[in-house]
Structures are given as C-alpha cells and as structure tokens.
Design a protein around this nucleic acid. Structure first.
Lengths: 111, 111
DNA sequence: CTTTGTAATCGTTAATCGACGATAAACGAA
DNA sequence: TTCGTTTATCGTCGATTAACGATTACAAAG
C-alpha cells in the first residue's frame, strides 16, 4: 500500500525530494532548459520543441508549477511561462546543500 | 498510455532525470545522507534509523543501486552499503551542470 | 547438518504517473 | 456575437511506485 510515510522524514529531505521528483522526467528537464535558454516562454513554443503532445506538456508544466519551479502568466489567449525566481532559487539552494553534504567520496568504497 | 517517450530527449536530459528520480523520495535522500555521514553502512543500521520496514529499505536501496548512486558489498550475513564513488561523482557532475545551466534568474519574471 | 541472523525477493494492494485524444474555457479579432 | 487560436482540464488506460508481510536465500556458528 502506498501509505506514504513521507511525513516521518526531515523537512529538508522532503523538500529535496519534491524538487528532485519534479526533475525526474526528461521532459521537465527539457522544459526548464528551454525556459532558461530562450525568453520566449510561451507554452505553444514548448509544444513545438518537445516530442510530446500539447496536453502532456501542459501536464508537465502543471507539475513544475506545483513544485514551485515555474510560473505562468496569462497573456491574452496564450500563457507565458518562466522559471519562478524565488522557487528556483530555493531549489538551487536545496540541491546545492545536498551536493555539499554528500561530497564526492574517496575513490575507494567504504567497506 | 505510458508509452514513455524518454528516448526522444537528449542523453543529458535523460541522465539527469534518472538521477533526480532516484533522489525523488525522502527515504532515498535520507539513505544517502546516512551513508555519507556514518561509515557504518550496514543495511540493518539503515533500517533502524528509518521509519520504514526492512523490505521497503531494501527496495529503495535497490533503486539507488540501479541508478548507480550506491553500491553494496556482501560481508558475511550482512551487506555493507556506501555511495558508489564513480556513480555519485557522475551524479554530482550532472546536477552541477544543470545548476550551472539554469542560473538563478533575475528577481523579476520574464514576462 | 541444523540453527540463527541478515538481507533480498515475492505477492499483493492502493496510489500515482505518463501519455493521449477530446472537450472545455478564455480571449482577441472579425 | 461568433469564430479561431491557445491552453487547461477531463477521462481513460496501462505501467510504475510505494509499502507491507511472508517467504526465501545465504552465510556463519554451533
């Protein structure tokens, strides 16, 4: 059963997991890269660039938005997406902390 | 349909996604942190520290191993786990590249 | 060889994910 | 107001995930 015991982990662990989960699909990584590269962040542009359907892109955008990594602004009939400044900054912080906490280990294993 | 179009994204995007997916659960983040903190990386220790059952821990360890982040070495009746040196170094590289490629945006949104 | 302790696997269950087409909603233009 | 364009949502489907207890596999000890 997916009784999801997530509550029992630390706040930081859960937050990192949320970020990582959002990054856990190539389409979402691609979307973030596109949003960072070009300033033209209209949804339709993304659909043209990606090998998935419009509804699926929309779905991924929703997940990124839920994770706080992306924000969308309605602009007439279309929607302009971009990285969420504070959310992405926070994500960078959390991932950076994780990398700092888990440094590259010595070349030989522990045991 | 889960037709998984992952093949159609770039190699880097897919690899980042694999890493991120492995980090996408608080239990796995916790496991990695425990492995980095203490050198005592015996599976049983992890089970004692985590609020989930032995079989679930084993499952998560398997996923981390599949993602190349962790390695296990049989030591008599128990198994000693630790960060996979090369795999984790690679993961650090990929995540670092991503953070470099997606810098903290200007405080104001794009549109 | 049998027992004991440890970890992996199996089987099951519920929930979530990923994908799509179809439909609905929102808006500007005619 | 109606039409075309754009995006979000709905409904569906199969696959995967997360979790657990039970069982199995294995190695060391007796």
């Amino acid at each position: 059963m997916a009784t999801h015991k997530r509550e029992q982990f630390t706040e930081a662990e859960q937050q990192v997991a949320v970020i990582a989960k959002a990054l856990g699909h190539p389409a979402r990584v691609a979307i973030l890269r596109l949003l960072a590269q070009r300033q033209a962040c209209v949804c339709g542009e993304l659909v043209l660039e990606l090998p998935i359907s419009q509804s699926t892109v929309s779905q991924h955008l929703k997940e990124l938005k839920t994770a706080g990594l992306v924000q969308g602004e309605v602009d007439g009939p279309r929607v302009c997406y971009c990285l969420d400044p504070t959310g992405w900054a926070r994500a960078r912080q959390l991932l950076g902390d994780l990398l700092a906490e888990l440094p590259a280990p010595a070349t030989q294993a522990c045991c």
